[in-house]
């Protein structure tokens, strides 16, 4: 459920965010004073060399890690207070994660589940009728060129097809925010364009915000913004087009 007041504030609001791995002498700062704001419906691409902190920032925004220092509000929630362990309500961490669509570098599909069932696992977390679920699953798999692969388990799918199933799983519930880590690395040009069109459509129709980490120059022009990180700092943040 999306509160209209919440949607007026940025989807992502990062203020002076710091994050470090290790302690004492082994402490390594990977994010150092990050400020970033992403509006609802905005499509941003984050680039940077390996170790620049892109993935760590993505995982913090996705509530997969807990912030250590600085402000981090996502979809109207202060992530430093999310989850029972941090003073939040029991189950609010899971509820928050259901509002996101995270695409990982690796597909992480259950080998025992078909493409249809894998996508269904995502929709099962949402209160929809069976008919609505079926229509959505079939629709998104068809859009991603997998209409003949509903019954296929990962072992019978190519790398690109598996990745598309994972993308369908992340997008089928029409999330408010999509976080994608190199989603097009395993895709050819045609399928990359299909995925980008899906993301654009979500941004346009559902005001879904998209933050994508990628080194794939083919997708840069699809974004509204390009954010460049180096050594845990944002060194450039430019509007495209």
């Amino acid at each position: 459920m999306i509160d209209s007041q919440v949607r007026r504030e940025p989807a992502i609001q990062v203020e002076d965010l710091e994050y470090a791995f290790g302690e004492a002498e082994a402490r390594k700062v990977v994010l150092d004073g990050i400020d970033l704001s992403l509006a609802a419906g905005e499509f941003a691409i984050m680039t940077g060399p390996s170790g620049s902190g892109k993935t760590t920032l993505l995982s913090l925004i996705g509530a997969l890690r807990s912030p250590q220092q600085g402000g981090l509000r996502v979809l109207g929630r202060d992530l430093s207070r999310l989850g029972a362990a941090r003073g939040g309500e029991a189950g609010d961490l899971e509820a928050f994660r259901r509002r996101l669509g995270i695409i990982f570098q690796l597909h992480n599909l259950f080998p025992a589940l078909t493409a249809f069932q894998s996508v269904q696992m995502s929709l099962d977390l949402h209160d929809l009728s069976v008919e609505e679920k079926d229509a959505r699953i079939e629709g998104i798999l068809a859009k991603l060129g997998l209409e003949e692969r509903f019954d296929y388990k990962p072992e019978r799918l190519s790398g690109g097809q598996r990745q598309r199933v994972a993308i369908a799983r992340a997008l089928v519930h029409e999330p408010e925010l999509v976080l994608a880590d190199e989603p097009t690395a395993a895709l050819d040009a045609e399928n990359t364009e299909i995925v980008l069109e899906l993301l654009r459509e979500l941004a346009r129709k559902r005001r879904t915000s998209v933050l994508m980490v990628t080194q794939d120059a083919r997708v840069f022009e699809a974004a509204d913004r390009l954010v460049h990180l180096v050594d845990g700092r944002i060194v450039s943040d430019v509007q495209t087009g």
Partner: peptide, 15 residues
């Protein structure tokens, strides 16, 4: 064998 898949379920919002 399914550690990554279970972790993905958690990331998706499964408790």
């Amino acid at each position: 064998d399914h550690l990554e898949e279970f972790a993905t379920l958690k990331a998706m919002g499964y408790g």
